[in-house]
Amino acid sequence: MALQVVTANRIGDGTVVYLTRVGGWSERITDGEVSRSDEERDTLMAVAQATAEIPEVVEPYLIDVVEEAGVIRPVRYREAIRAQGPPVHPAFGQQAEEG
């Protein structure tokens, strides 16, 4: 079973966010709640859909991740770019916070 987290864009400003343990949304993927089974995945998506109806976020979806030493990283480079910010603009996105 692939590890997954739920991601979306925040409705007001479009910022990339990840669904956290407590059912909120964080800009840091590493705060994301990881699903490890079909049931966990369905639960996460249900929580995400409910917040999308408020609406808090737009079009939540699942992405595959890997977890190493407590750090969560996306598998696909598209999602790595979403998580970090545009590589051509290191001053923008999460990469700026961490740099």
């Binding site: 864009n9 409705i11 007001g12 400003d13 479009g14 910022t15 990339v16 999308a52 109806e53 408020i54 609406p55 737009v58 079009e59 598209r78 770019i81 979403r82 910010g85 545009p86 923008f92 996105g93």
Partner: peptide
Amino acid sequence: RLAGELTEDEFKPLRLMNGLYLQLHA
């Protein structure tokens, strides 16, 4: 849309008619 009266599916064609996309980061 912000009040939740329009779903994203309903809003999307409207925002697109005004050139507003949702891209990777924003």
